[in-house]
């Protein structure tokens, strides 16, 4: 079966800096893949190429049968199918929690207001925020904001969800509530590509862990294997720092 996401020999340069140099990876349907690596290793950049917030210099990215990295592809169509959760949440501050969630379905998918709101309410319930429907982002804690952001991405009914360090900006006591939502999402069969160093999440939900360094994929393996007996010296050195 065709993998949901396939990245082949991806290269991305910013001026002289080569952020991604020849990375390849696959995410199967329903699989949860965690990408780890030191800062500046190109993991976020790679993630941002999947929904075309960045454009590859060379290489290919496929989602099912669609060549995402094709310069002539309908970028908006790609983004409709790929949900993204950011490190800094990026909720829309002038809209309520529900407004944040219903905006894109309404204006991108042209969903009627009532239907979008029903979807939004169900999603807020799913992330445990049924009582925060009318709250504005600055009335929510970081953890709550990130959960709304996850609901917002889910409202577009994406084929795959990208998480770009979703818990890095959170206070420690709020990390768990976000990870719980992500673990539940994984259990429900969502395809997920996650940049994060949360070992708890890796153990609870990840099927595969990918270690990136210097814009390259160094090592791939099941979490318990990669964490306990990494094959590569660079992986070992990195894990020593974070474990």
């Amino acid at each position: 079966m065709l993998p949901r996401v396939r990245i082949l020999n991806a290269h991305k340069r910013f001026g002289k800096l080569e952020a991604v140099r020849g990375a390849s990876l696959e995410v199967q349907k329903g699989e949860v893949v965690l990408v780890i690596g030191p800062s500046g290793s190109g993991k976020s950049t790679l993630l941002r190429c999947v929904n075309r917030l960045e454009h590859l210099n060379s290489g290919e990215i496929w989602i099912d049968e669609e060549l995402v990295s094709d310069p002539h592809v309908d970028v908006r169509h790609i983004r409709e199918e790929v949900g993204m959760v950011f490190q800094s949440f990026n909720l829309f501050p002038h809209l309520s929690a529900l407004g944040n969630i219903t905006m894109a379905p309404r204006i991108v998918k042209k969903m009627p207001k009532e239907q979008a709101e029903a979807v939004g309410l169900a999603l807020l319930e799913r992330v445990g925020l049924a009582d925060k429907v009318k709250s504005y982002p600055d009335q929510l804690s970081g953890g709550q904001q990130q959960r709304v952001a996850i609901a917002r991405a889910l409202a577009m009914n994406p084929k795959v969800m990208l998480f770009d360090e979703p818990t890095s900006a959170l206070d420690p006591e709020m990390i768990k509530e976000v990870l719980d939502v992500m673990v539940q999402l994984a259990k429900d069969g969502m395809t997920m590509l996650v940049v994060s160093h949360e070992m708890g999440f890796a153990r609870a939900a990840a099927h595969k862990v990918i270690f990136m360094d210097n814009g390259e994929v160094i090592e791939t393996g099941p979490p318990e294997e990669l964490f306990s007996s990494p094959r590569e010296e660079r992986t070992r050195r990195f894990l020593k720092h974070i474990l």
Partner: peptide, 23 residues
Amino acid sequence: VPKGQMEAALALGMSRWQAMRRI
């Protein structure tokens, strides 16, 4: 307006103009 706002809007599939007008 923080850059992340435009990115979040685009990532949801909005056009640049929709993001500008609504967000």
